[in-house]
């Protein structure tokens, strides 16, 4: 083997190496064009309270430009202690509050503009936390200690006050479950491509929750609320 051969091979090899790097670099770079998922200037996002905001003053029925107190209707209506569907002005309400299935679990049977504790004590609407606490003791305790519910202001009470929201600000008393809300836009990626995880859940529970049971047999009619006995 002459050294002349070696030099030629050597030069060829170095050349091939450099050319290879160029090709690699160019091929890989062509696939990396910036792709902004989130446009830089976007309309300001709504950081307001959310859909469960409720008035904190006394309960009034607003109709045709007038505000009515409960007693204005209930003065001449008779009391019905049975669990029932809402009618009349309450048609827009739904009662989905766990075991609470009558109006008078919370509302006073005669003092319509007030609430009632299980003890029979009459309390005003704006004192509703005491009523809620009667059943939801542990959550009431968390709320009292700052571990439940929305807060604003100062963690350091010596520096300033804290405003704590009452139960009904977030929870509709008739349907206390927190309502689904629209999420703010996803963060996006600045460059490159983002890939979503598989649709198939990775956990057993995730799989089970995705499972769609077969439809019930046709002869079983749904139970109707007004037909059940008190």
């Amino acid at each position: 083997m002459s050294s002349h051969d070696g030099l030629f091979n050597g030069a060829l090899a170095v050349g091939a190496g450099l050319a290879g790097y160029l090709v690699l670099a160019l091929v890989m770079s062509s696939a990396a064009e910036p792709k902004n998922v989130r446009a830089p200037a976007e309309e300001p996002v709504n950081l307001d309270f959310g859909p469960n905001e409720r008035r904190q003053d006394e309960v009034l029925l607003h109709k045709a430009g007038f505000a009515y107190e409960c007693i204005e209707c209930h003065a001449w209506q008779t009391r019905n202690p049975a669990p029932r569907r809402f009618i009349g002005e309450h048609l827009l309400m739904n009662l989905e509050h766990g075991a609470v299935n009558t109006c008078f679990t919370c509302h006073h049977p005669t003092e319509y503009s007030s609430l009632t504790l299980p003890s029979g004590e009459i309390i005003p609407y704006n004192d509703h936390v005491r009523l809620c606490a009667g059943c939801h003791g542990p959550i009431y305790k968390d709320w009292r200690n700052g571990a439940h519910g929305r807060r604003e202001g100062y963690w350091d009470r010596s520096a300033g006050p804290v405003s704590r929201t009452d139960c009904i600000i977030c929870h509709d008393p008739h349907q206390p479950a927190f309502k689904p809300i629209a999420p703010l836009p996803p963060p996006g990626v600045a460059r490159g491509e983002a890939f979503a995880p598989p649709e198939e859940p990775s956990t057993v529970l995730g799989q089970v929750l995705k499972y769609v049971p077969p439809p019930p047999p046709p002869d079983r009619a749904p139970v109707r609320l007004e037909e059940t006995e008190p």
Binding site: L26, M28, A32, P34, V189, G192, E193
Partner: peptide, 14 residues
């Protein structure tokens, strides 16, 4: 945190 974002060098970087 489990996010999958791919990388490739840009022309300038190369």
């Amino acid at each position: 945190l489990g996010e999958v974002v791919e990388y490739g060098p840009t022309f300038n970087e190369s």
